[in-house]
């Protein structure tokens, strides 16, 4: 990655489900190329044998016992939805992948 990679902006935007205008695509492509170029600094580091950190501290076995707690009233499931029917959120018919 010595040369800044070009993001396939159409592919990534589709993967992220974000519709971008043609102008946004141009601007973002250039800005992201800049940023990715800056990320190249990382390649200079030797990370052989280094454990990745998903969290700042290593803690294990944080869990809850299987005891019921409070529920929300069913109205909260649809309270902020743009479209509802029969106490459920309504979406255009889902065919195959979404």
């Amino acid at each position: 990655m010595s040369e800044a990679p070009q993001i396939d902006i159409d592919y990534v935007a589709r993967l992220a489900r974000v519709e971008l205008s043609p102008e946004e695509k141009v601007t973002y492509s250039a800005q992201l190329a800049d940023i990715l170029g800056y990320f190249d600094k990382l390649n200079a580091v030797d990370v052989d044998g280094i454990e990745p950190s998903a969290h700042p501290f290593h803690v294990v076995n944080v869990w809850a016992e299987d005891v019921p707690g409070e529920c929300l009233p069913k109205e909260e499931a649809i309270r902020h939805a743009a479209k509802t029917k029969d106490e459920q959120v309504m979406v255009p018919k889902v065919v195959g992948d979404a």
Partner: peptide, 8 residues
Amino acid sequence: HFKDYSLI
């Protein structure tokens, strides 16, 4: 799934 919408 219904004819032209789905409910959750």
